[in-house]
């Protein structure tokens, strides 16, 4: 039921783990439906994703989409990464079974949340700087 590429990513997932001093972290899913994805990013001065890692509790599709999304955006700018959709992630894997498209295909959402987290932190830092500069 899974494509070869899904099975390849399931068997040899890329970028598993966490980043201790991550600049952003995004988590999606919940235990009720049985999928939890967490993505960590490290972002450099040029707004480029320098490093990215994931941890996922879930089915084959959940693990494969998490893995492939890290591969798709590593080295990309945040704006480029924000363009990546769940649909593209599924397409990158050669498609997913119909029943997986909804619940286990949330890796892009997790990534976007990580970017959002990073940007929120930056805004907070800047306003902190301003305040201390007063």
């Amino acid at each position: 039921m899974y494509t070869e590429k899904v099975m390849e990513h399931f068997t040899n997932p890329r970028n598993v783990g966490e980043i201790a001093d991550a600049d952003g972290m995004g988590e999606v899913g919940n235990m009720k439906c049985g999928d939890i994805m967490r993505i960590y990013i490290k972002v450099n001065e040029q707004d480029v994703i320098e490093d990215i890692k994931f941890r996922t509790f879930g089915c084959g599709a959940a693990i494969a989409t998490s893995s492939v999304v890290t591969e798709m955006v590593k080295g990309k700018t945040l704006d480029e990464a924000l363009e990546v959709t769940n649909k593209q992630v599924a397409a990158e894997l050669g498609g997913l079974p119909e029943n997986k498209l909804h619940c286990s295909n949330l890796a892009a959402d997790a990534l976007h949340k990580a970017i959002e987290d990073y940007r929120n932190k930056r805004v907070a830092e800047k306003s902190n700087l301003k305040e201390t500069g007063k």
Binding site: Y2, T11, F57, G58, G60, A61, A62, N99
Partner: peptide
Amino acid sequence: RYVEGESLILSLDLKGIAASSGSAC
């Protein structure tokens, strides 16, 4: 604990073992 049933079944299947699960997937 800490793992999901379908991913267990897929992994076992890769080793030639046929099993099933009660996970949502």
